[in-house]
Write a protein that binds this DNA or RNA. Structure first.
Lengths: 169, 169
DNA sequence: TCCAAACCCTTGGATGTCCTAGTATATTGC
DNA sequence: GCAATATACTAGGACATCCAAGGGTTTGGA
C-alpha cells in the first residue's frame, strides 16, 4: 500500500468499462470510484493526525459537535442525526469517549428515554487541540485549489441534498 | 438516519469554523467533510444493489478486478496493490469469496511465496450480473451532471496522484 | 383512562479496514 | 554455499459501521 503504481488504476478501470461496451456509464463509474479512493486517503491523513491525541475520526467528530453546542450537551439521537451515522455508532463512540473521561452521559431532565452526552473539561480541551492540529495538517494542506474547493462544495452539496440528507436551499 | 435534516450539517460546520476564527480553512474542511459523506451515501447505494447477489463492495471489487485480468487470475499482492487496500483485507475477502466458491486459491507456479486467486465459472457469471446491476442502478443514476463528472475525475485524479497513488499523468 | 404504536438506547452479530507479529519462501551478498 | 535481508500471506486484535432484536418510556387515539 505504499509504493505508487505506474498507472492510475481508476483510469484503467474506466478504459475496461469502455472496452466492454459500458461507455455510457464509464465516466460516472470512474468519478464514483475516485470519490471512494479520495475518502480513503483523506481518512488516513486525518487518523494519522488524531492518533497522538488518542482519538479516531468518529470520536473526534462527536467531540467537535459537542464543542459547538451552546450548552455543551446533546441528546444521543440528535448527535446521531447531525453526524448522519447509525445510533449504534454513537453508542460505540460515547462508550469509548466516556471511558477516556472526555464526555459524560446524563439522563434527560424530562424525557426518560433520552440520554444526554456532555463534554468534560478534558474533552473540551482535547477537542480544541485536535481541531488545531487538523486545521494545520489536513484542512490547511488539502491540495485542492480554491476554485476546486468551491466546486466540490457546490456539486457534492447538490448531490447530498438530492440524496435526502437535508431539505433547505 | 432516514429523515432529512432541515439544514445542511456541513454548511453549519463551515459557519462554525468561520465563527471561531478558522475562516482560512473552513472551505477545505467543508469540501473534505462533503467527500466523506458522499462516499458514505454512494457506498450505501452500492451495497444495497449488491446485497441480492450476496456480495459486498469489497468482494465485488475483487471479482471485477479478476474478471478483467487476461488469465482470470492474479497474485494476491497484485490485487492488493491494484485495489489499494491492505493485504489483510484481500485475505479476508478471498476467504469469504472462496467459501462461496466464487474464487479459488492456487499456488504460484514458480514463486512459492505467492498465492494466485482465480475466478470460478460461478464467480465470473456473478461478476457480470453484479456489474450490470451496478451500471443500471448506481453508475447510470449517479445524479452528477456530465460536466461535474469530468471535473471530479480531473480534480480527484490530481489529488490522488499528488497523494502518491500513482505516477503517470 | 389505558393500551398499542412510536421512540430511544443498548446488546450481539456480521463485515471491513488497518496494524502487529509470525511463518514460509526468495533473493542477495559475502 | 550459506547467512542476512526482503517478500508474501495469514493469524489475532482494535475500531468502526450497519442491522436485528430487546427492554424501557412516552404519546396518542379508542
Amino acid at each position: 500500500m505504499g509504493t505508487p503504481l505506474p498507472r492510475d488504476p481508476i483510469a484503467d478501470a474506466q478504459r475496461n468499462w469502455e472496452r466492454h461496451g459500458w461507455g455510457d456509464v464509464a465516466a460516472p463509474m470512474a468519478a464514483i470510484t475516485a470519490i471512494m479512493r479520495t475518502q480513503q486517503i483523506l481518512l488516513a491523513r486525518i487518523e494519522t493526525v488524531l492518533k497522538p491525541f488518542g482519538l479516531t475520526f468518529a470520536r473526534y467528530e462527536l467531540l467537535a459537535l459537542l464543542s459547538f453546542a451552546r450548552s455543551g450537551a446533546l441528546p444521543m439521537n440528535k448527535a446521531s442525526a447531525l453526524l448522519q451515522v447509525h445510533p449504534t455508532s454513537v453508542t460505540n463512540a460515547v462508550d469509548r469517549l466516556e471511558k477516556a473521561a472526555l464526555v459524560a452521559r446524563s439522563p434527560h431532565p424530562t424525557d426518560g428515554r433520552t440520554t444526554l452526552i456532555e463534554l468534560t473539561a478534558d474533552g473540551r480541551s482535547l477537542a480544541k487541540k485536535a481541531t488545531a492540529a487538523l486545521n494545520a495538517e489536513v484542512f490547511g494542506k488539502s491540495g485542492f485549489g480554491d476554485d476546486d474547493v468551491d466546486h466540490l462544495i457546490r456539486v457534492l452539496g447538490t448531490f447530498r441534498r438530492d440524496a435526502g440528507d437535508f431539505t433547505d436551499d
